[in-house]
Design a protein around this nucleic acid. Sequence first.
DNA 1: CACCTGACTTGATCGTAATAAT
DNA 2: ATTATTACGATCAAGTCAGGTG
Length: 914
Amino acid sequence: MSVEAGVIPKMLDDEDDDGPVVFKRRDTSKTSQSNSEIKKISVSRPDKQPVKQASNVHTPNDGASGCPKGKVFQSTKALSSKPPVAIQKSQMSSSKASPVKSPPTNSASSSHDQPKKHSIVKEISPSRASPVKSPLVNSASSMHKQAKKHSTAKEEKPSDSESEDSEDDKPLIVRFSAGLSKLSPNLAERGQITNPGPLQPPKGILRAFKSPDDSDDEKPLSSKFQMKTNGGSSSGKIYHPDEDITLASKLQQNGSVKRDSQVMKTSSKRPAAEISSCQSSVKKPKLSGASPPAKAKQLSAKAEPEDENDHIPIAQRMKKATPGISVTVKKKTDKTIASSLKKDKKKQKKVIKKSKYSKSSKVPPGSGEGQKWTTLVHSGVIFPPPYKPHGIKMLYDGRPVDLTPVQEEVATMYAVMLETDYVQKSKFNENFFNDWKKILGKNHIIQDLKKCDFTPIHQWHLTEKEKKKQMSSEEKKALKEEKLKLEEKYMWAIVDGVKEKVGNFRVEPPGLFRGRGEHPKMGKLKKRIYPSDITINIGKDAPIPECPIPDQRWKEVRHDNTVTWLAFWNDPINPKEFKYVFLAASSTLKGQSDKEKYEKARMLKDYIQDIRVTYTKNFSSKDMTKRQIAVATYLIDKLALRAGNEKDDDEADTVGCCTLKVENVKPIPPNILEFDFLGKDSIKYHKQFEADPLVFKAVEQFRQGKRGSDDLFDKLDTSKLNAHLKELMTGLTAKVFRTYNASITLDDMLSKETSEGDVPQKVLIYQQANKEVAIICNHQRTVSKSHNAQMERLTEKINELKGVLGELETDLARTKKGKSPLKDTGKRSRNLSSEALAKKIVQTNAKIEKMESDMKAKEDLKEIALGTSKINYLDPRITVAWCKRNEVPIEKIFNKSLLAKFAWAMDADPSFRF
DNA sequence: CACCTGACTTGATCGTAATAAT
DNA sequence: ATTATTACGATCAAGTCAGGTG
């Protein structure tokens, strides 16, 4: 394997790779089952095959090379036949369902098999929708189509309805929600937000939560339908992320393929997604219960008879509140429970096996019971080169000082930071000097940092930098290649036979800790990491990576297939924490869990209505804890706040929802809440928010009798909050709301901006939506130093143009009167006909307009970071679908790494709705 | 339950390559 | 061709959350 892999890699990289990459691992689905399942599917459906092939096609060269980069032997079989999605699904479901091999599943006839998958799906998530209890039975008996319908119906309401036509099949929930969500209120609408003050929350968010009903979080059906219709024409086709073909072209190509795609969707795509989501959610409980199966049961059961006071589970209550929903919800829970139980049994076995060498049986993102991989081969990590003394002497008290290489190394770390504002911070200096003194020794001449002058070293550093910069491009290239050669073997891992990129295979070099905000440990020496600090995780049968430093050894070598890390070491700054080496974001493993994340968020869509009703009800609960939970949930939902775990004293003191202090939330009558605090990364969160009057009141109450530094939510912490959320929806945690709100906002905005116009204009619309999300999530960036200068320059240019415009107009006026143009400075306008002048005026105006809008956009975005939400919060399928519908090449939105990361989403149907 | 460990996601920023503007 | 910006990708800090323990 390894050998082969070695060969493959080269082929892989690059664009070609990307395409193929998409499908990489799916095939390799961990469990053999998946493969089998897939196969079955393919068999049953002829249409799919073409699709698959298409996907594979990318690797046009493959033939030559042997295999597409990513894929490998194992995968080949799977790959060849299945569409990625299907595979994934199958993996998920299959693994869980049938612990060991597919045989059981497969056992059924091939035709049955398909249904099986679906059935599984149904059981899990869809189950809610369909009352049927024994999914298996249904599946078996029911046609594939039916199965599909059910599964699909739930998740993709719009698309399904359209493409599938099986509206009836839609779960009650769906319908219900649709009905409820009358308004299309939210965030999305405001999309184009006039320009918000920098930190103003989007209106949607800000809006007061008037009544439960108002919160329409979901988009109105109408909008969905629109989408469908729009997409309809183009939709249908599956988009294969092939190499260079643009979406548009692909779409066109696909035109005829519709049915295939649809089939795909129904059978594979949707279900897969659902399955995965379902599983994930289900799994967790199982896992937790893994040890004792009963436990799992309890957990899941909990949902039902949950709550304290009411005794009625929240979910149930909600249901009550909303009759339609209630039914569906209940069903869901039942199903989940049932499924979980079943799974539990299976899992148990597995778990036990695993437990031998792995302690934790975590929730498996994609695989069966916590197992993340079967075989794992990699080369370990690469270490930074040893320190090379430069011999430049710093000054102490004006005199050069001799330092040993080790001492000099640390001094250099500081010298290199002379231009940062860290060196202005006393904490930084204190920590640095403390650690440095340890290395200097007690009696060293250097006793006072203030007398240290690092500028000689700093100067040297600058010179070195300059030298590098001045190198010829050939030299640079050679250097680069050398480095690549050195690192190449570390860049790849082979997971279950598939070559995958490793994320951070470079061990972090020593340096001074750059904590953010007022971090108590800033400036401390982050010591060099050696092999003896590193624990390697690798497949049992894989060769143990050779330790790159002679005469040293790894700290430990493990073979734990329940985790995804390849190596870790203890963080030298906080020995309690670890630094992990993981696979890259483009890997199948990451992709799978990413997808699950979005599926979970989509699931929230079906519950959000009830959840909002519930917390609204509890704003005035007598039970203080309940009230706090309600208000906290509300804030997390409406403001996209983070959960807010407790932090130690040796960390920067930043807060999230549960750790908000009294002083962070100021009530401004009648019902404005002003938030002002430092969140993650010490990023300031400052917004005024028009809150539900009940929330306003509750917050005032929470503040009573407390000091500014006291916790606003004294009865709450993240584990309590999440425990509560889990009662409302399987797998629900605080962060899911962020994902949900971000993605639903994008989806909503993109669906309603039925854009005409050219591609750049459409891209702009996308950016607007993206920006909206970034504002919701409070993703900021520091304003570039040159921003002001840039703006000034732009203003100047605009003024210049305006001057020209004035001249043109004058000339035009004169020309009309028969006079000759003024002897203007610009000769252009001279001697032009009035038509030509008029034309020029129009052009100039357009130019000015464009510049002004560019400038406005620039000013607007100067402190908003769009990237973070794109990478972490926006379901890529929304983007892919939108691109397909609008014939915008996906490359306009996703760069290379994003394309690789979201390979799993590239075949989203154009009618996909979050 | 409080606390701790562990694993994995999210996040801003930095250095440099790529691209645009002059 | 050179410079100014932008875009990327890498980096590594800082969150979230599950699960175990006593």
